[in-house]
Computed example of a mutant assay.
Amino acid sequence: MSFQRNAGRGSKRPAADVDAELASPLAVAVSAVERETLSMVRNALMLRRMRLAFQPAVYAADPSIIGFYEGYIRLLDPKDRVIPARDFMAVAETQELGREIDVAALQLGLQVLQRNPGIRIAVNMSARSVGYKPWTQMLRRALGQSPDLGRGLILEIGEASAMQMPDVLIPFMADLRAEGIAFTLDDFGAGATSLPLLQAFGFEIAKIDGQFIRGIDCSETSQRIVRAAAALAREFGMFLVAESVETPAEAGWLCDVGVGCLQGYLFGPPEVNPDFSRFRHGRSGG
Rank of each mutant, 00 (worst) to 15 (best):
R278I: 05
S126M: 11
F183Y: 00
A192M: 08
S39H: 14
Q4R: 13
A27D: 11
G67V: 12
M50R: 15
E21F: 15
L155F: 04
L38N: 02
Q107D: 13
M46P: 04
L149P: 12
A190M: 06
G10H: 07
A127Q: 05
N6M: 09
G258E: 01
V18I: 14
S146R: 09
V58Q: 09
D217T: 04
G71P: 02
A242I: 02
I213C: 08
P134T: 12
A160M: 13
A206G: 09
Q4C: 10
G286S: 05
S219I: 06
L143Q: 05
R283H: 14
G258H: 04
G109T: 01
G202L: 03
I181F: 14
Q145P: 00
G268W: 09
P269W: 11
S219E: 01
D186F: 00
G191L: 07
P274A: 00
F212V: 08
E100W: 06
I154K: 05
R115E: 15
A29V: 02
P166R: 00
E243R: 03
W253M: 08
W253F: 12
A90M: 10
T247N: 06
L155G: 01
G118L: 06
R51Q: 14
A60N: 05
F183K: 01
Q114V: 05
G285D: 15
I66P: 02
L176V: 03
G237C: 04
D19E: 12
A200G: 00
A249E: 15
I121Y: 08
S146N: 14
V112L: 13
A228Y: 12
S219V: 01
I154P: 02
S146L: 09
Y132N: 03
L26W: 11
L113G: 07
F201R: 01
D186T: 07
I213P: 02
A92P: 04
E159A: 03
I216W: 00
Q137F: 04
A192T: 07
A178Y: 04
D102F: 03
L262Y: 03
F236H: 15
G8D: 00
L38M: 04
R177G: 09
E246A: 08
F276M: 08
I213Q: 05
I73C: 13
V245A: 00
A206D: 07
S24I: 09
G150W: 06
T221C: 11
Y69R: 02
M1K: 07
Q107E: 14
R35I: 02
L113H: 09
I225N: 02
E159I: 05
L38W: 05
G191P: 00
Y59E: 15
I157M: 06
L76M: 10
R9G: 08
D17G: 04
R283G: 07
I170R: 03
T37I: 13
M173V: 06
D80Q: 14
L169G: 04
S39F: 14
